[in-house]
Amino acid sequence: MPEEPYNPSPIGNPSVLARRNWWQTMLVKFIGKHTPKCREMVRIVSQSMDEPMPLIMRIKKRLHFLICCWCQRYEEHLRYIHETARKFPEHADEASDITFPPDAKERIKQKLAGQSR
């Protein structure tokens, strides 16, 4: 087992900051130590979509994203889901092939005709 704990920034890490040289390594370690871990960050990312986050947490999130492209992607994906989910109702007819019963349709038409008289 290596002496150092799990390396969150392995070789080939595509994040903005990775352990590519001494300075970056120091920076990655510093940010990793002072921002929430990924398991906690995904919870924060979700909550930030439902209520405003304190400024300090928003800064920590941005800093964390510099060293973790996976959490950054996670936030992008949640925003993508948010954007598409709100469009879902208008595309519900494409999402399934269940038929609106014709007799129900007729009943509603008759009711509407009675209502607008």
């Binding site: 879902f88 519900a92 007819d93 399934s96 609106f100 129900a104 038409k109 509407l112 607008s116």
Partner: peptide, 19 residues
Amino acid sequence: VQAAAARWVDANGECLYRY
């Protein structure tokens, strides 16, 4: 309004029902 309502049911009933 009656004509519009019947048209709505034909054009949007399926989508609304499925959602």
